[in-house]
Design a protein around this nucleic acid. Structure first.
Lengths: 261, 261
DNA sequence: GCATGATTACCATTGAGTGGGAATCCTTCA
DNA sequence: TGAAGGATTCCCACTCAATGGTAATCATGC
């Protein structure tokens, strides 16, 4: 699949190119793109030209290139992420109006949590989640909820690799993490104080899809010193049930009722 | 740029493939994808294989393929759409809480309006806008607001092509549309009753970017028989100013004050 | 068991893709 | 004004990735 000296296919290089753009680098010159991607200059120009033609890339007023609106459109239009987000948003607004700090919706992708929606200003609280941003599974409440409801093979995969200790309270010992996962399954939520930044606590609950598997985690981030974090749980639970139902989930009543207090 | 008999490049075919997915077709078999795209069978399988490998496509539990979460992530992460959406969402919620029907944010892309955000349930009102969906410029309030603030070359391009008459009230005469555009510029908003579906009215106002150009249109769709649609305008204006300011716009006060009633 | 359709395997053919090098075109700064 | 540094475009000979037909194999349902 590669005509190139480096052995990369066009698709591979296409991904390299769009990966060079993120929230801190939304536009750049072609030459800079070439440097960032490590692609040969000529090749970069040729590829960018074609992508501009197809409108997957665009030029901004200054002549720099950026991701095209068409790219966003095509990727969003048919994606299940959009459906999930749309189902969740109204309920997330409810949560946000009560909790006031920051509300996020995350899914598992590859070996990390990918946040697909986030409400709440960045200023009110220390919360490093971003839409379309990633965080490690073991150090986030969302991640742990999702992991708790994943196949054991996946759990093994995550827990067997070296885990970063972000703060004093980050658990990195596989055995301790497994105990925590069991606890999360039993209680129906994850509460993790200061595991990624010391100032904040995350609380997360699972969201179910129509096939009754866990498809996402709904979470809030609150200041760590807040008195009664557990008081947030019912709010989250209620919202998560609403989202699940909107996704076509037809509740397993007992389990959920047991969990709700 | 093409090795193929049809003269299409890989990038072109890649676009053909992801374009085959939309909100009504989120997953399908490879063979069906081949049929939908018109690509040779073998080629479809080969291409899909590579895209699965790169995780731009994914298999669902049934073995069908769908757009990968990675695709959404890469396209969202670096896109200006995300920034616009994030700036707008809080203000859109305000509008939605007052107007109660449906609130949308649209941009001009190619020769249509592309909606990048939408609040409000689909059930309360007849409103065919969808997130990542498109509608024609001349038949939407958002489109007309955006067109009113576009370069005249662009206006000419739009107005010189055949325009679909959706309902009795859809304007399709270029001269009449130009008069309407002038009116929109002067008043600062567009109000269009039943131009695309007879039951609904759209009202839209411009959103400014940091360079004081119009970057988006904020709009609400309300039942057409609602008494005083003009009463919605100040709400929209206020929200649009808020969004503009969040985008770094440093108001041209007179213009906007004049427009506000 | 037997269609019908989806998926995988095989393989000869060829032009799209490649990338080094050099020529322009901008900026910027002295 | 002029020179230096960088971005962009032009040129071109080489080659293997991509192609797509045919056929075998693998589901699935009736």
């Amino acid at each position: 699949m590669a005509n190139s000296a480096s052995g990369e296919s066009i698709i591979r290089r296409f991904i390299t190119i769009i990966s060079a753009f993120d929230d801190k680098h939304t536009s750049m010159s072609v030459a800079e793109l070439g440097r960032r991607t490590g692609l040969p200059v000529t090749t970069t120009y040729r590829l960018v030209d074609e992508l501009l033609l197809e409108r997957l890339l665009e030029r901004d007023p200054k002549g720099n290139i950026q991701l095209g609106t068409r790219m966003w459109e095509l990727a969003s239009r048919g994606s299940k992420t959009l459906g999930l987000r749309e189902a969740a948003l109204p309920f997330m607004e409810d949560v946000q109006s009560v909790v006031q700090h920051s509300t996020t919706l995350g899914v598992l992708d590859s070996d990390e949590v990918l946040y697909i929606e986030r409400l709440g200003s960045t200023s009110t609280i220390v919360d490093i989640t971003k839409i379309a941003g990633r965080l490690p599974v073991h150090a986030t409440s969302s991640g742990m909820v999702l992991l708790a409801h994943s196949p054991s093979a996946y759990q093994d995969m995550i827990l067997s690799r070296p885990l970063t200790k972000y703060t004093e309270t980050t658990l990195t010992d596989p055995a301790a993490l497994r105990r925590h996962l069991a606890e999360i399954r039993q209680r129906g939520f994850a509460a993790m104080p200061g595991v990624i930044v010391p100032e904040s606590s995350g609380i997360a609950v699972p969201v179910y899809g129509s096939d009754s598997t866990v498809v996402a985690a709904l979470s809030v981030v609150v200041p760590r010193d807040e008195e009664n974090t557990a008081a947030r749980v019912p709010v989250l639970m209620t919202a998560a049930r609403g989202i699940s139902r909107a996704l076509g989930w037809r509740g397993k009543l007992k389990g959920t009722l047991r969990q709700s207090h």
